[in-house]
Write a protein that binds this DNA or RNA. Structure first.
Lengths: 221, 221
DNA sequence: ACAATAATGTGAGAAATCTCATATTTTTAA
DNA sequence: TTAAAAATATGAGATTTCTCACATTATTGT
C-alpha cells in the first residue's frame, strides 16, 4: 500500500467529488492510497480502524471457515465502502479483502473522526444506500443458493461474466464463489458441453446456445 | 391491521422513546398500529410506501422463487425496521413479512417525509447500524450455508431455538428456513436420535447429549 | 362435532454434490 | 532457466439431499 502524493490526491478527490460525501472538512483525516494487484486490504481476524472508499479497482471478499473451507463471498467493484461495518458496530467482522486490479482508495482513519462521521447526514445517507443494497444483494444470493442447484446458478454466472460469448474464469476461484467443489463445477461444465450449450476451446468455453443458457439461468428471479 | 388510539399511541411512543429516533417532529407522519398474529405486513410483489419500526412482536420474512420453492429468509424480532430498503433504493424489494405474534409497529408513510428522513442524521445513524448488522448477518448465513451440511447447521439451530433442553419447532417451517427438503430434515433429526444426541418424545425432541450437539454446532464460526 | 386442512412420518429410488487419488499442464518465483 | 507451486483434468466411490408416493396424526374453522 502506498499513499499518494499531494498532486495525485487532489486529482482523485476532485475526480470523484469527495467533498460532496461529507458536510464537514474530512481532509485532515483522509489519505488517498493505492494498493497493488493481489494485495490484501483487510486480513481476516484483524480489527481495522480504517474506513476505505474504493474509487477505482476490483477486489474479492473472502472468509475462511473453521473447517478450512474458503468462501469467496463477493466480487467487489468500485465504487464502494470497505470497513464500514466495523465503523458502525463494535463487532469484529474481519473478513479478508484482496485486490484483483490496482486499486485507488480513500482511506479515513476513524479514530479521531468517528463521531463526526456518525453525525453527518450526508455521509450517513450514502452509507445507508450502500448498506441497503448490500443487504438486499446478500439476501438474494442467499435465497437463490438455497433454492437452485448449480446448473442454474452457474448458467446465470456464465451469462454475467462471459465476454464476447466466451467464458474464461478460473475454476479454482469460481468454485469458491459458487460454494461447490472443484470437481462438481467441472462436471456441470462438461454437462453444458454435452448439451451443446458450451464448446470448450483453448481460450475458454464458447457459448454456442445462448437461448439454452438463458433458459437455465432465467429460472432465477 | 388496526391503528391504535391516541392513548395507546402515546404509551408506546414514550415506552420506546421514539422521539430520540428523529431530530425533527415526525408525529404528523406517524401512526402506531397493531397487527394480529399471522397477518401479512408486506406482501410479495407489492411496493410499500410505508416504513415500519416494529416495537413489539415477531415475524417471518419470506420469498417465493420462480420455481415455486419458498424460502423463510429470517425470523424477525423486535426491535427492527421494515420497508427501509424501499425507502432508500427505488428497487422493488418486495419480500413477504408475516407476523408470528401480535405485533406493535410504528408506521411512517414516507410519501411526505422521505426527504426529511433521509436528511436526519439521528435517524440515519440508527438505520445504518441496523443495516450493517443485517448485511453482516446475511453474509454470515450465506457463507455458512455454503460451507456446512445440514448436520452442522441443524445442530446450531437446535441449540439456538431449544427451550429448557427441548426442541419443538415446526418441521414444515424449519425446512424452509434451513433450505432443505422436509424429508431430509426428518432424516437428520432421526440420525441425531440414533446417535443418542436427541430423544424424541411427545412434547418435542429432548437434548440428551448437550456436548455432542455442541460439537456438531461449534464447527460453525 | 366433524370435515377440511395442515403437519407428521416413512420408504424407495434418483439426483446433486463431495472426497480422495492421481496425472498433466500452466504459471510463478528464485 | 528451472524447480516449485498452482491450476486443470478425470475416475471411482461415498454422502448429502431431493422427489414422489402414500399413510397417519393433529389442528382448525364452522
Amino acid at each position: 500500500m502506498q499513499i499518494l502524493s499531494h498532486k495525485e490526491r487532489t486529482y482523485y478527490l476532485e475526480k470523484y467529488q469527495i467533498d460532496d460525501f461529507f458536510s464537514f472538512d474530512v481532509s485532515p483525516f483522509l489519505e488517498v492510497c493505492q494498493f497493488e494487484k493481489g494485495e490484501w486490504i483487510f486480513q481476516e481476524g484483524l480489527f481495522p480502524d480504517t474506513l476505505y472508499y474504493m474509487m477505482e479497482g476490483k477486489a474479492k471478499l473472502y472468509v475462511t471457515h473453521k473447517n478450512g473451507k474458503v468462501s469467496l463471498i463477493e466480487y467487489l467493484k468500485a465504487p464502494l465502502f470497505m470497513g464500514e461495518i466495523e465503523l458502525l458496530n463494535e463487532t469484529k467482522y474481519t473478513k479478508g479483502i484482496q485486490t484483483v486490479t490496482p486499486t485507488i482508495c480513500l482511506s479515513i482513519t476513524t479514530q479521531n473522526c468517528k463521531e463526526k462521521l456518525l453525525a453527518d447526514a450526508r455521509f450517513l445517507r450514502k452509507l445507508c444506500v450502500f448498506l441497503g443494497e448490500k443487504a438486499a444483494n446478500m439476501t438474494a444470493k442467499y435465497t437463490q443458493n438455497q433454492a437452485y442447484p448449480l446448473e442454474n446458478r452457474l448458467a446465470a454466472f456464465i451469462q454475467l461474466s462471459a465476454e464476447q460469448g466466451i467464458y474464461k474464469e478460473k475454476h479454482t476461484e469460481i468454485c469458491e464463489y459458487l460454494g461447490v467443489s472443484y470437481r462438481h463445477l467441472l462436471y456441470v461444465l462438461a454437462q453444458f458441453c454435452e448439451q451443446g450449450i458450451l464448446v470448450k476451446q483453448k481460450n475458454g468455453y464458447h457459448i454456442v446456445d445462448e437461448a439454452g443458457l438463458a433458459y437455465l439461468a432465467q429460472e432465477i428471479s
